[in-house]
Design a protein around this nucleic acid. Structure first.
Length: 260
DNA sequence: CCAGACGTTGTT
DNA sequence: GTCTGG
DNA sequence: CCAGACGTTGTT
DNA sequence: GTCTGG
């Protein structure tokens, strides 16, 4: 039974321990900087070389514009995946960044990585649609998800600043909050980004809110009525500026499966 | 006290 | 930085 | 992005 | 080489 024969059979027949499942980590921001400035009443966009992003992939950690409030709104350039300021090594920082693409809204006030940021450093993550994949029979089908009545909307984020102990470089990073899905979204995924109703955008980045009691009521599951989605082509690497990711693509076998 | 973790996802 | 486990 | 896997058999 | 998972 045991011995030479058969480690691999054993591993395959038992659910893999620690198997990791997909997170929410594909986004887009296809608006021009003029449009973004107008939408958020903020000048000079950061990063200064911003151009519309058709497919942003979280594990690339590329700086992109967020919106924060100081005296007035302003853009802040940060990379996806929050590195807490207390992380001591570059190696740990990289690991941590990969693990912190999302922050679960249900536990965000307790966890060491997030509890200070949720009280003090909330940000808007402007988006023109995010992407998520549905898994069916071991295949993945990517979807574009968007709001029917709002070309540009905001996902809830928190951010932090970390100093690289080797180079002294200061890095700004952020996490995207997640919630359970609404009924419609649960067709494709079990977790959903926290979409902020437009009326709550100002409140979210209001720095005078500093307690769990005030902030917790903002962590709501976005209602499905204003959301829609459709299937798109599979993701590729280096397709950040490839606008055909926006196009609807049908998967006949998926439509077949959905009949049952 | 010191060392090590600090996170996300879902349940074949 | 702060908490947990040994 | 990077790291790691990448296969076969039959069915309690 | 290419795909998947994190």
């Amino acid at each position: 039974m045991l011995g030479l024969f058969d480690k691999k059979t054993f591993l395959r027949d038992i659910p893999p321990v620690g198997r990791i499942f997909p997170l929410c980590y594909h986004n887009s921001l296809t608006a021009s900087s003029q449009k973004l400035s107008a939408r958020f009443s903020a000048g000079l966009i950061e990063p200064p070389d911003f151009r519309p992003i058709f497919h942003e992939h979280g594990y690339e950690h590329k700086p992109r514009p967020l919106v924060i409030r100081e005296d007035e709104n302003r853009f802040l350039s940060a990379g996806w995946g929050l590195i807490p300021k207390w992380v001591k090594s570059v190696e740990k920082a990289n690991q941590m960044q990969n693990g912190n693409l999302n922050a679960k809204s249900e536990t965000i006030f307790e966890l060491p990585s997030f509890r200070e940021a949720i009280l003090e450093r909330r940000c808007l993550i402007p988006s023109t649609g995010f992407y998520d994949s549905k898994e069916v029979l071991k295949n993945t089908y990517p979807y574009r998800v968007f709001l029917i009545h709002e070309e540009i909307f905001c996902l809830a984020g928190i951010w932090d600043e970390w100093t690289n102990p080797e180079t002294g470089e200061v890095k700004k990073t952020y996490s995207m909050l997640t919630t359970p899905p609404n009924k419609k979204f649960s067709q494709i995924h079990s977790r959903m980004p926290l979409i902020l109703p437009r009326k709550l955008e100002d409140v979210w980045i209001d720095q005078s809110l500093k307690s769990q009691k005030e902030i917790e009521p903002l962590l709501q599951i976005y209602p499905e009525e204003n959301m829609d989605f459709y299937t798109i082509r599979k993701f590729k690497t280096d397709d950040e500026f490839d606008e055909d990711i926006l196009k609807k693509v049908d998967y006949p076998e998926l439509s077949q499966l959905e009949l049952f």
